[in-house]
């Protein structure tokens, strides 16, 4: 295995494009090293992105959003007070990944690129409307985060392409987001179901909403039906019931060692209700 430490994304993309064998990018490494250890992947080229200047930074964009470097670990996201104030749901999703030790290494970009439908940080990014900057041999482009995962373990990135930043939009006034997942233990498990809700209020009414579900389809999904169930409502019991119904309808899970299909559908509805309530309270400026 060749271990590369490029200092620009262009160089990283060039090494990747030139690689003829198995290639992996290394950010936090909490997925890649596990796969290597298990013998699932034996990379010929491993490209460590952490030597590229700026990858460890969180920066405010001119528009008021946040540009997050691909090597920013969860523990740094969680300690960034302004980011947490703007996007508590995104940060709490990332902070649920693995242990304290894993938080010291794991990154949003890595969690996204691993392509797991159960990735805890990804529903929050979907709900937030995050934008992903992809750098390839021909330069960089921005795509909506929903376009990155295409199936379990697979992304839309072409050979030679690498994620170079993730950008969260400016937090709208009277907005709030939240992420909840279901796991059998209190920590250390992969989500059996996950749900992120991001919304903006106009007075007491939900003016805009985005709802994402994890672990109920081959990728994290954004559910328009869930959003429509609560837009225009005050998130009263009827709206929450409609949301739960929509979430159950949107969930198309499989049964596996972590949970049954029936369980995932049922709990998708429960989590959507509970996450929406938290997001609503946050948008109202209430502690949640």
């Amino acid at each position: 295995m060749r271990y590369h430490t490029p200092t620009t994304f262009q160089d990283a993309a060039a090494i990747a494009a030139a690689s003829t064998g198995t290639l992996r990018f290394l950010a936090g490494g909490t997925d890649v090293l596990v796969q290597m250890r298990a013998g699932m992947v034996q990379p010929d080229d491993l490209i460590d992105l952490k030597h590229i200047p700026g990858v460890d930074r969180i920066e405010k964009t001119p528009e008021g959003g946040w540009r997050i470097g691909v090597a920013v670990p969860g523990i740094v996201l969680g300690a960034h007070k302004e980011l947490v104030r703007d996007w508590p749901g995104v940060v709490e999703g990332m902070n649920l990944v693995g242990s304290t030790q894993v938080q010291g290494r794991a990154t949003l970009a890595g969690n996204l690129c691993n392509g797991s439908p159960a990735a805890d940080s990804v529903p929050g990014l979907f709900a937030a409307g995050a934008v992903v900057t992809v750098t390839g041999p021909k330069g960089s482009r921005d795509i909506p985060v929903e376009q990155v995962p295409v199936g379990p373990g697979r992304t839309s990135l072409a050979k030679g392409e690498v994620i170079s930043a993730i950008t969260l939009p400016p937090r709208a006034k009277n907005g709030g987001d939240a992420y909840l997942r279901f796991i059998p233990r209190t920590e250390m498990d992969i989500a059996v179901v996950g749900c992120a809700v991001n919304l903006r209020l106009d007075g007491d009414r939900v003016a805009e909403a985005r709802v994402a579900l994890g672990a109920v389809a081959p990728t994290v999904i954004l559910s328009e039906a869930c959003a429509q169930a609560i837009i225009g409502t005050t998130l009263d019991d009827a709206a929450l019931a409609a949301l739960a119904k929509a979430a159950k309808g949107a969930a198309k899970p499989i049964s596996d060692k972590r949970g049954t299909k029936e369980f995932r559908i049922e709990v998708a509805g429960v989590l959507a209700r509970r996450a929406a309530r938290i997001a609503y309270d946050r948008a109202k400026g209430m502690k949640a």
Partner: peptide
């Protein structure tokens, strides 16, 4: 696999699993 913490160390003050980090890093 980063699930048990028996290999915990700190690197530049951050708590990590030393099994989830390459020696080269």
């Amino acid at each position: 696999t980063g699930d048990c913490g028996a290999c915990s160390v700190t690197v530049d003050g951050t708590l990590v699993c030393s099994c989830l980090m390459l020696a080269a890093e």
